[in-house]
């Protein structure tokens, strides 16, 4: 091997060996200080039972915060509301996005215009959007009721009827993430070789069969990615509730989500430790669901392998 005096000197060798880390250092530093450290700190804070917030002195540790959380009916309600929302909103928004993506992927006119329209909510502030929605859904002066009136539907108290909260949040969730998910789906659709469709047509597959036997399996990884990110997104629902219902968690707390609960504990009750504990529980729930999703995918793959190698 050729020796080179410069590259043989210890500091240079060290630098060369850890070159990748050197490049990563600035980003890692920022992430550590502003994200990883606070996450660890808030995780620990969940176990503070007696502490001085201003002096950062902890006098006693324990599980009291979690115990209180489990006894709090509001927290149970928050989990229930969020779960219900996730269960309905996540699959629906993926399905709707896929539908729009497939439509956009076909040769329709003004495709770029539609794409921009769908992408609009994604680049707009959620607070502004929520204010507009609150205005549209106003019982007496809102656009939605005005349109419904044309069809002879009686005024609906969208924002004050607790039964309307879930549907409104589901629609909002579908709409706000539509552009992003459509773009991701379009990328996936564009990656499918058109010859598969030609072959399928000659094999006698009609449009529906082509969708279920070619498009959907080929989009498998995309659907998986979106199902994880969408569920996480839904679990973070907060701004729309806070703004639309004028800083309240909806009528009869029907819009009380986990993040709203955390926010409420933190800013309104000043019980930081309780908020930290609730955040930790949220983290555990999201982690569990994500792992479950991975598990399902692995199971499906395993089943597929078993079936084909029979």
């Amino acid at each position: 091997m050729r020796t080179n005096r410069l590259t043989d000197s210890p500091p240079v060798r060290f630098a060369l060996r850890y070159k990748a880390w050197l490049y990563l250092l600035p980003a890692l530093l920022v992430i550590t200080v502003f994200q990883i450290y606070p996450i660890c700190k808030s995780f620990l804070m969940g176990f503070y039972t007696d502490f001085d917030y201003l002096k950062d002195e902890v006098y006693a540790w324990g599980f009291d915060n979690f115990r209180n959380l489990m006894r709090d009916a509001d927290f149970a309600l928050a989990i229930k509301n969020t779960m219900r929302l996730a269960l309905v909103a996540a699959p629906l928004s993926i399905a709707v996005s896929l539908l729009f993506a497939v439509l956009l992927n076909s040769d329709i006119r003004c495709r770029k215009v539609f794409q921009s329209i769908y992408f609009l909510p994604f680049v707009t502030s959620m607070v502004a959007v929520s204010i507009v929605w609150a205005w549209m859904l106003n019982k007496d002066f809102g656009l939605v009721n005005a349109i419904l009136k044309v069809f002879g539907v009686k005024k609906i108290a969208w924002l004050t009827d607790p039964n309307m909260t879930l549907p409104i949040l589901v629609v909002l969730c579908i709409w706000k993430g539509l552009g992003y998910r459509v773009i991701i789906f379009l990328a996936g659709l564009q990656g499918i070789d058109p010859r598969y469709y030609q072959a399928a047509r000659l094999d006698g597959a009609r449009a529906m069969n082509r969708f279920f036997h070619i498009t959907l399996p080929q989009l498998g990884p995309t659907v998986f990615f979106l199902s994880i990110t969408t569920v996480i997104d839904v679990f973070k629902t907060f701004d729309e509730v806070y703004v639309m219902y004028a800083k309240e968690p909806g009528p009869l707390k029907s819009g009380l989500t986990i993040v709203y609960y955390i926010f409420d504990k933190f800013y309104h009750n000043w019980s930081f430790a309780a908020a930290a504990a609730a955040s930790f529980v949220l983290f555990l729930i999201v982690l569990a669901i994500t792992l479950l999703q991975f598990g399902v995918v692995r199971l499906v793959a395993l089943y597929d392998e078993r079936r084909t190698s029979r």
Binding site: Y196, Q198, L202, I214
Partner: peptide, 16 residues
Amino acid sequence: AENRDIGMVFQNYALY
């Protein structure tokens, strides 16, 4: 094409 009763082999085979 789906109703023409044709078998076709594509250049890159297009196996699913």
